[in-house]
């Protein structure tokens, strides 16, 4: 576990736009919003397709792989519960199947290792009692 349990829990109700994403992570699937009409991808989730303005937007599975688009190494603990968790690395990951879409996650690696933009990564599903986070590890 990269960040301590329960400090920043996933908050998503049954009607929330991101609920299918979080439900997918429980099954170790990466689900991203895709228009049923024009087949365009979009993220974050919205009530309308930004490409064709259809309201028929659903979620489809993408390959759990991507490349590091950007990163940041967090040193300030923000809240006292993170005092022993810093530094940690946040990565911005461009998805292989929809490269314009970038997910935020943590890098599962030594936090002091240099982070190289363009590095190939794969999703690591980090299961918590009530939700599952999508973390990223370097692809061998």
């Amino acid at each position: 576990m990269i960040l301590p349990e329960g400090v920043f829990p996933v908050v998503s109700g049954p009607d929330d736009l991101d609920r299918p994403f979080w439900d997918g992570t429980r099954e170790e699937q990466l689900l991203i919003q895709r228009c049923r009409e024009c087949r365009g991808w979009q993220w974050g989730p919205e009530l309308i397709c930004r490409h064709c303005h259809s309201f028929e937007v659903g979620f489809e599975e993408v390959a759990p792989t991507g490349t590091i688009y950007s990163w940041e190494r967090v040193w300030h603990p923000i809240v006292p519960q993170l005092a022993d968790a810093v530094p940690f690395v946040i990565v911005i990951v461009s998805l292989t199947d929809a490269p314009q879409i970038r997910l935020v996650g943590n890098l599962a690696a030594d936090p002091l290792e240099p982070v190289v933009i363009g590095t190939a990564v794969e999703a690591v599903f980090e299961h918590h009692p009530d939700y599952t986070l999508v973390q990223w590890a370097k692809r061998s």
Binding site: L3, F8, V10, V11, D16, S70, V74, I78, I90, V104
Partner: peptide
Amino acid sequence: PIDSLRVAYGMTTPATVYAS
């Protein structure tokens, strides 16, 4: 609620939202 997509990974402050 939608902010969990970033907040769950520690991107919670203005500094962490913009540094990358």
